[in-house]
């Protein structure tokens, strides 16, 4: 019975953590959208900022990956 509760908690926690990875999608989308609007305003400067874009994407995505990892840990490791 207590196993049930523990498992219940794990699954609920994993589900909650998975929300985080979904939220990071908003962050990634925001980075890309702002880059695109900036790039369309000033296309000549766009090429020099792709490195920054990828770093920004990686940072935003990493946080989502962290929460995804938490979900995975809850599901399979705990």
């Amino acid at each position: 019975m207590e196993g049930d509760i523990a498992q219940f908690g794990q699954f609920i926690g994993a589900g909650l953590a998975a929300i985080g990875s979904g939220l990071s999608a908003i962050g990634v989308g925001s980075v890309a959208a702002n880059y695109l609007s900036g790039a369309l305003r000033n296309p000549s400067a766009a090429a020099s900022q792709t490195a920054t874009l990828f770093i920004g994407l990686a940072f935003a995505e990493a946080l989502g990956i962290f929460s995804f990892l938490v979900a995975l840990l809850l599901m399979f490791a705990v």
Partner: peptide, 8 residues
């Protein structure tokens, strides 16, 4: 970041 991306 690296390991997480690949594992995910």
């Amino acid at each position: 970041r690296l390991a997480g991306n690949l594992v995910a």
